[in-house]
Amino acid sequence: MTGPDSGGEVHARLLGVTRIFPGATGQQPVHALGPVDLELRRGEFFAVVGPSGCGKSTLLEILAGLQSPTSGTVTFEGQPVTADVPDGIGVVFQEDASFPWLTVWDNAAFGLRRAGAPEAEVSRSVNDALAFMGLQDFARAYPSQLSGGMRQRVCIARTLVLQPRLILLDEPFGALDAQTRLLMGDEVLRLWRRTSATVLLITHALDEAAMLSDRIGAMSARPGRFMDIVETRWPRERDSTIVSETSFGEITGRLWENLRGESIKSLGHSGAGPA
């Protein structure tokens, strides 16, 4: 396993990426992001933190191929990412994206079935993913019968069955309470270790980023750029108990030092423009 600090193989790369949204008639175009350079190493856990509206989610959607950059290039496993989502990338969104008309089991099976996988394989992968996410007892339930945290697990399970090599998480715990978030953080760490996938997590919670990641990129207010990249040097085997380590406080302290001024800037125009 490639250690996060050994400068291992590059898994995905953004080079000079910017995103400018054309303004509505009579309005200035919105420069949301960049230019941003980023190299994700295979198998690392990378978090992006930044004030609201700094273009974090835009960065993720560009990497996923859901949006095209205004300029710059994006590559995943050596191949350029164009207008389509490349095979091997899984995305979990901030909003509840579970399908309310399907049971938990059918939600998880959705992607594999659409891809035409044989039913035996679907069944095996789904049962496996549901067991891993602790959802096996809710397989027949509908999402409306579950809590917000459980629904987000359903979405993770749906991504997991496709065995992604790069998992993009867009503030997946933004709507959850603090304790549930700590526990979901443990789940994500477990998931990361077991799948050996590269994980990119977008979050606004500094403690969450500090607890989960190998490296953390701190972004400036709009247009978002990386101001600092912090290495945590946590062991691969870790969980939410590291919040009590002294270096944990140092990391969040350094992040906040970077972000405090930026967050104040973004307060001035919070809610304006695409996030």
């Binding site: 859901l66 095979d87 899984g90 969104f93 994206a97 959705f110 992607g111 749906r158 496709l162």
Partner: peptide, 18 residues
């Protein structure tokens, strides 16, 4: 229709008709 459904469809490589 929540826009996130369309994003999910794209990340799962669904065709237009799917």
């Amino acid at each position: 229709i929540p826009p996130v459904y369309l994003k999910v469809a794209r990340t799962l490589h669904l065709s237009k008709w799917q």
